[in-house]
Design a protein around this nucleic acid. Structure first.
Lengths: 186, 186
DNA sequence: ATCGTTTCTTAACAAATGTGAACGAACTTG
DNA sequence: CAAGTTCGTTCACATTTGTTAAGAAACGAT
């Protein structure tokens, strides 16, 4: 999985082996047990994490109901960049839906990496873009498609999640009641 | 309106008068007529704009239908930061819903400002955060609230927009058919 | 001001989604 | 393994939202 990470970094810019090594050396292994939080609403996000294995959910609590806004799984970065960058308290939470192994990068280590080679900012910029684009897509889906279409699109585009995320979270993510999702599945 | 802008910038960090002057001097006045585009899908966003007067809409086209994802009005910054920062082609468009006056900041001028004082990056970081937060809120609203609740929330929180954005755009933004919105208004 | 176009409203009906309740399956915990 | 809990399914019924069509109102261009 580290290969994947390095490949991803290289694809962003032409970093030297030295720089890559320094970057990788700044990561620390970290585990989150299923159900535990990586980030809680109100906290400042002090790390980004590269997921080696497992699955996490970003969510917002609305009237006591957890509404997922995104998911991330092995081979992807996770964390709340706004909070990480601006040190503002997060307005959403991130928790593990499975036991999850991370390579964690602290804000202070990111600072050092940036001092060494400012082009590493591209990592953040790229990740911001990915995350923003995926969000506005989902928003447009919610605004434009009916429940059935949203579910079909989810099935088609998020195959990896279908059997790993509980139905009721998928339902909430799609803006559907669990019973209705159950009906659609027939 | 320039006062507002300067106040906003000062609120982000303790910039010197010199730096502020340099920043303001990098802006160029620019007009967009109602219906004209500031950015079209597929283009790279080469400017940010501070809106002096007017109103613009960010939108995505879905099956020939324009789905607004956000609005911006006088006193606010506009532009597609992902595209601006990463020089990637935009996956959404921005057009004026009213004749709009901007102070425009080009990517190359932003570069110069950043050379002078790297802390100006906070402008972008802050703006990214605002925009991301407002998006995930809207997403959660679409997923969680029914049409009536979404409309009521919009009426309450977006008073400035209610009478300036055409109904059918408000409807599309809220994920409702125009006829249904009309019914709700009674 | 007039004509043509676009936007908004209304209504009847159809379709989709929510609600509440019940039940069994699957998963935890002791 | 047993008991308790959570999760997923099903159903009947209520409510919301979409659809189609028509006309009224507002807007723009000549």
């Amino acid at each position: 999985m580290l290969d994947t990470l390095i490949k991803k970094i290289r694809s962003l810019d032409n970093f030297s082996q030295n720089e890559i090594d320094f970057f990788v050396g700044s990561l620390e292994p970290f585990q989150i047990a299923k159900g535990e939080h990586f980030l809680k609403e109100g906290q400042v996000c002090r790390h980004l994490g590269f997921i080696e294995s497992g699955l996490v959910m970003y969510y917002r609590v609305y009237d006591g109901v957890e509404i997922p806004t995104d998911f991330a799984l092995e081979g992807e970065w996770m964390g709340y960049l706004n909070s990480f960058t601006n040190k503002t308290s997060a307005d959403l939470s991130i928790k593990a839906l499975e036991d999850t192994n991370l390579l964690r990068l602290s804000a202070s280590n990111f600072e050092k990496i940036y001092q060494l080679q400012p082009r590493f900012i591209k990592l953040k910029d790229h990740y911001t873009e990915m995350s923003f684009v995926s969000h506005t897509r989902h928003t447009a889906d919610l605004a434009m498609l009916n429940a059935k279409q949203r579910y079909e699109k989810f099935m088609k585009e998020k195959k990896e999640l279908v059997n790993r995320v509980p139905q009721y979270y998928i339902a909430a993510y799609l803006g559907i009641k669990p019973q209705s999702l159950s009906r659609l599945r027939k």
